[in-house]
Every structure is written in C-alpha cells, then in structure tokens.
Nucleic acid binder design. Structure first.
Lengths: 351, 351
DNA sequence: ATGAAAGCGCTAACAT
DNA sequence: ATGTTAGCGCTTTCAT
C-alpha cells in the first residue's frame, strides 16, 4: 500500500516543499507563483512535491511581503440607531433585497479576479472607528462604501486613508472619491413624460426622505420635469422609503389632491404601500390614477397590479464599482472617475 | 503652528514607535496589546509615540506570528447553476431577505468580539475549490457554512480542513460538524394543531422541494402530525420555495381537493403565492380555508390578509452559530454540539 | 536558470 | 518590568 500518510500536524511550508523537491525555496516560490524562468524538469518536480506535501501558501506571510491581501471591504454605513430604542439585530440594510443585488453585482466581478469580500458594518461612532482602524491595518486592498445617510463622515475619512475606494451613490458632501450612480434626473423625467403622454395633468409625487441626496434629487427632478411639461403645481408628500411610509404619504397626498390622476412614487417599496391606498380609496389603476415607481426592484412585480417603474441597473452598477476599485488597486494612472448609469422605463400595468 | 505633518510615505512600524518613545519594540508591543506588566510612565510615553507616529499595527505581520486572523468566513453554498442557462448575476441567496437576517444575527455576535466576516460564494466545483484553498491558506479562523442543497460536498470537505466550523441547518449527509436548526417537527405540529383546533378536517400542505432536508422533514412532520390528530389523508403538492412555485402548487392542490379547509404552506414566501390563488378561487380566508405558513419572514406581514405562521428565530439562530465557532476558536474542550431552537406559532389573520 | 540571503513587521521566549 | 533575540513563511534582489 502506497498510502502517503500526511499526518504531519504542522502544515507544509515552502521549506518543506523545497527539501522534498531537492531545490531552493526561491525556485518553489517561482513555480507556485507561475514565474516564467524555471526549468520544465524542476517545475515538474516542484509540482509533485507540492501535492505530495499538500502545500498551501500561507496568506499572512505572503501578504507581509507583497503588501497585497487580494480582498476588499464592502462597508455598509447606516445612520446611528437610536441609543434609547436599541433594536436588537441589525436589520435594515442587510435584509433589504437591494443590498443583495449590490453584493451580487460586486461578486460577479470580484470572483473572477480572485478577490474576496469582507463585509463590514458601521452604524455608530465606535464601529466607524473600528472599521477605519481595520482598513488602515492593511486587511484589504480597497473599499466599496455603501452609505445611506448624507451627513456620514465615513466617506471623507475613507478618502483620508488613501486606500483605493468607490462610493455607491453621490456623497452628501463633496469627497475626493469616485462614485457610481444612476442618472436620477433622467429617470424622473422618464416617469413624468410617460405620465404626461397619457394625458395626466394632476400629477403628484410621494418623495423619499429629504435628508437623503437621492431623494432630494428625485423630488427636484420631478418639479423640473413637471415644469418642462407645462404643469406648474407639483404636490408632494414625504415618505421614508419604506412601504408603510409610502402608504402614509399617499394618504396625505390624496387628501390634499383628491383629483390626482398620476403619481410618481420615488421608490418601488413605497409604491407597494401607496398602491393599496389608492385602490381602497376607490381609484382604478391605471384608469383613474396612473402610478410610476422607481428602482425596478422585486416590489415592482410583487405589486398588484404590476408596477410601471424606472429601472436602476443595480447589479451592473455594483459590478462597475468593483471594476473601479480593482483598477485603482492595479495602479491605474490618474484620478478614477465616477460613472453615471442611464435609467430605463419599464412599463407594466399601473401606468 | 504646531501642525505635526505626518508626511512620511511609509506607515509607521513598531520600530518607529519604539525609537520615538525611547523603549524597545517589545515594550511597545506590550502596550499596544494591553499586556499588564508595563510601567505606567512608559505606557504613557508609548501611547503618545503611537499617536504621534500614527502607528497602526500591521495585520499580516501579526497574523503571521499569532496564527490568528480575527475573521471568519461566511460561506454560501448554492447548487450549481445550469451550465447552459448561465443567468447573469448571482441572485438567489443574496437577495433572499432570509440571508440578510442570517448576516444580521451573525454580526450581532461577531462585532463585539471584533471578528470580521468574509463573504464567500461557492456555486460550482471551481468556486468550491477556490473557497477551500482560501480557507486552508489561513485567511480565517473559522467558518459558518450556509448550504442550500443536500448533496453538497462542501460540508464534508470543510470538516476535512479541521477548521472551527458550524452549519446552518442539518446537513444532507452526516458530517462531523455542529449545526444549528429549528425543530421542524414541532413547528409543523404547532401549525397542524392550530388548524385542527379550529375544526379543520380537510388539511393539505404545499410542501417544499423534496430534495432539501428541511422540506422533507416538514412534509414528514406534517403527515405525522395529521395522523396524531386522527386525520389519515394528507394531500400535498410540491413547491420550490418560491412565490410562483407556491402559487402553482396551491392550484394543483386545490384542484385535487376542492373541499380543502386548511393548508399548511412550508414557507411564507410560497404562502404569499398561495393565498391569492385561494382568494381568486373564491375562498374566504380564514372562513373557508385557513392558511398557516412557516418562517415568519417579512412575507408574512406583507401578505393580505396577514399570514398566521410558524416563527423561526433566524437571527437568534445565526447568533448562536457565531457563538459556536467563536467558542471553538477560543479552543473549547470537547466536540462542539449542535443546537436546536424551538419554534413558535404567530397567529395573524389567515388562521 | 538557480540559489543564498536579506528582510517584511510583529510576537513571545528568554534573559536581565 | 524591560530589553534582546529568534523566528513566523514568504518574496525578491543579487550573485552565480
């Protein structure tokens, strides 16, 4: 029986392989790292020694000298939770399907590049500091930051580390970091144009929380689009990007403008709350009131009737973020530039 | 102006701090790592030198000698995607809110322990190998494996690495690894008892895909529970744990048993598809047909009427998984044991 | 093409 | 209590 019992408790090192192959550590290293200049015969010997010893390169040792970790951090930054009403569990972002789409798009690019993803959460000053320390310790080669609040200090601090980085969405304050975003204004225009082209004249909007840049831009874009269509009045109510918030805002808006015949809801999730409010108020969709959402998330198809909405290519955007950091890590020349994606209108049943 | 310009391009090392503080590297190391035996005066000096030099310990160097990385891997293992119909983007698991809840529960425990999470996906033989290599390279101290298919080779291979690890759910085949799960049988019993206590006698089930352990156990538990209630016939239809699949299965079940007065749907998401089918078939809920789901996910409250369901404490279970790996990493004695959680019945409107 | 040797930055014996 | 020193496992000049 030629069973090679690799019972050595200690994992094999380069040294072990070198001894087994009768060569120097340097040669083994060259073979392992695919360096060109190695005699085919030796290369073969080394390969055999590697599998015989079950050699696996030690990450820490390699990283110590190469100064590369082959991993990036995905930092999720949320507004500090209320110190009094500490809800157990982190919820929000992670359970948001949108987040899953971001992860998905990121991985799509990162995986082929053999770059791993470290998931980090910053939701208060303490964890913010922890994250920064972690990043500075050289755990990762780059950072993708998803920040959901506009007054977040993290983007700026991140820029301070000098690490390759990219932001999801335009930051609240100007920061010397590239970002990836959808063209909000055009998206809203698409929605309003569609509504107007159907002859809708009393168009309102359920806006997002006005302390978030994206929500601000969408409301502003809505007003501008209405004006360009020759409609002056732009009634609106503010929601909080949740379903319940969308329902509440819709109720207020409807009360204020019972003659509404079109609504732009700034997120599909809010639309999911808004639509039943309209139905219960006796409005037929889309005959009496037409509704257009934003995102083209799962909520859009979950909605009944199915939601007409502005599509945001979330996965593609995330993939682009990955490419941007990767490029910086590879040492691209010049300041990395932001990328703006073009939205589409997806027509379903509500408009 | 006393602006200390830390323009040094090279990050400070222990050596630098030692020199600045006029002590040895060892002393600095002791202070940084909170070792007790350091003179308060020196400690203070060192602290000052640390902040003056902006010193941050290098992770790779530390990890190389301590053999600890202070991070664990969260490995998500999905069934191989069809090689012909390669859908772009990873979808499934990451966009499943359930996954978010797992991450949330994990982080809740990991974060205070200052342990980071590396997110990895294994969805084919190649990525499976990549993941294993990564783990063996010593990138992480432990592993949490979420595997969604029963014939997954990963659990066993993972056990082979000797790394501290824990599984989400009982594995398809026996594996020497601890796992965390909800008591499926009791959960189903809860559901059936509730249905029976309302006088329902024609009870069917929309089961999950029968190649998944959890789905099998639920169907088996359903049959057993019915029998113990004195009901012999247990009509069922198989869904695939998706909404559409739940709807389709419900249609088939209803066709087969038009006199159904109670349904146990093996997941809330499937129930979300099943409920409209019943409503459209003219059944009033819960008067004509009572429905009980499983999970207590968001889908349960999104459902209209709100879904009565069996609660699975996903976050708590994930937290427990984190504790199990952490304990193993700390070098707990004896084989780590699995933990079974007790489910609850959450009564809402459908039953 | 190959090997020898010098570190990468840190911790942990060991010595004082 | 503090310093000295020997590695941890790897890559990478620099000779040969």
């Amino acid at each position: 029986m030629t069973r090679e019992t690799p019972k050595s408790t200690r994992p094999a090192t380069l040294e072990d392989v070198a001894r087994a192959a009768g060569v120097s550590r340097a040669t083994v290293s060259r073979v392992v790292n695919g360096s060109s200049s190695v005699d085919p015969v030796l290369r073969h010997k080394v390969r055999e020694a590697v599998s015989a010893t079950h050699y696996v390169p030690n990450h820490a040792a390699r990283s110590l000298v190469t100064r590369r970790t082959d991993s990036i951090a995905l930092v999720v930054s949320e507004r500090e939770r209320s110190p009094v009403v500490r809800t157990p569990f982190i919820g929000r972002m992670f359970t948001d399907p949108h987040f899953g789409r971001v992860v998905s798009g990121l991985m799509e690019v990162l995986r082929p590049a053999r770059v791993q993803t470290v998931l980090m959460l910053a939701d208060d000053a303490a964890s913010c500091g922890q994250v920064l320390t972690y990043l500075r310790q050289g755990h990762v080669d780059g950072v993708v930051l998803v920040s959901s609040h506009p007054d977040d200090p993290l983007p700026r601090m991140l820029a301070g580390t000098g690490l390759p980085a990219v932001l999801a969405g335009r930051p609240g304050r100007t920061v010397p970091l590239p970002y990836v975003e959808v063209d909000q204004r055009t998206g809203v225009q698409l929605a309003v144009d569609h509504l107007a082209s159907q002859g809708r004249r009393r168009i309102g909007t359920v806006a997002g929380p006005q302390d978030m840049p994206a929500a601000q831009t969408r409301l502003e874009g809505f007003r501008r689009a209405l004006k360009s269509t020759g409609i002056g009045d732009a009634p609106w109510a503010e929601g909080d990007f949740t379903r319940a918030g969308g329902a509440a805002a819709m109720r207020r808006l409807l009360e204020r403008c019972p003659d509404l015949d079109g609504v732009f809801v700034a997120s599909d999730l809010m639309a999911l709350g808004a639509v039943p409010v309209l139905l219960r108020a006796g409005r037929r969709l889309p005959q009496d009131v037409a509704v257009v959402g934003f995102d083209d998330s799962e909520a859009a198809t979950a909605c009944d009737p199915a939601l007409t909405t502005v599509r945001q290519p979330v996965e593609e955007m995330a993939s682009e973020m990955a490419r941007i950091v990767l490029r910086q890590i590879e040492g691209a020349n010049g300041a990395p530039s932001s990328v703006i994606f073009r939205p589409d209108l997806v027509v379903r049943e509500t408009a």
